[in-house]
Amino acid sequence: MKVERVDLMDALRGFALIGILLANMLHFQFGSSGAEIIESANALNKVSYYFVKIVIEGSVYPIFGFVFGYVLIKMIESRENAELKYKNIVFRRAVGLSILGALHLTLLWEGDVLLTYGSTLFVLLLFFLKRRVKTYFVWGIILTAILGVGAFFGSNFVQLMKPLTAAEIMIYQEGTYVEILTQRVGEIIGGGGIGLVFTLLIIWIAFLIVSFLAVGPFVLFGMGMAKKDAFIQLEKGLQSYKKVALLVPVGLLLKGSIIFDTPFSLFMYSAGTYVLAIGYIALFAWLFNRYQTQMNHYFAPIGKLSLTNYLMQTIICTTIFYGYGFGLFGKLGVFVGILLSIIIYGIQLKISQLYLKRFSIGPVEMILRSFVYLRKPRKVN
Rank of each mutant, 00 (worst) to 15 (best):
V248I: 11
L247I: 03
Q348A: 05
G69A: 07
L100T: 13
E187T: 09
N88Y: 12
A23G: 06
Q353W: 10
V52Q: 07
G272I: 01
F221N: 11
L143Q: 10
S48D: 05
Y49W: 11
S360W: 05
I344V: 15
A41P: 06
G346K: 09
I344A: 03
M312Q: 11
I209V: 13
G111R: 00
G69W: 08
G337S: 07
R79D: 14
C317T: 12
G323W: 10
E77P: 01
V3W: 09
F264Y: 15
L126P: 00
F51S: 01
E168D: 11
I343Y: 12
G237Y: 12
V250E: 05
G118M: 01
I171S: 04
R378S: 15
I344N: 09
V219W: 07
Y61A: 09
A271D: 02
F288S: 04
Q292G: 02
E168N: 04
S306K: 08
V248D: 02
K331A: 07
G101F: 11
F15Y: 07
V55Q: 03
T314Y: 10
E174G: 10
I142T: 10
P62I: 02
I180K: 00
N42V: 02
V95K: 11
M25S: 10
G216F: 03
G69Q: 04
R5D: 03
I202F: 15
L354A: 14
V47Y: 08
T319K: 05
T319R: 07
L103W: 13
G327Y: 13
A16D: 07
E235Y: 12
I347P: 11
S306Y: 12
L72E: 10
G256I: 02
Q294D: 06
A82Q: 13
I189S: 01
V95T: 12
F335C: 02
L100W: 15
G323R: 07
P301W: 08
L181G: 07
E174V: 10
E179D: 15
F128L: 05
Y61Q: 09
I142H: 05
G14C: 03
F66R: 00
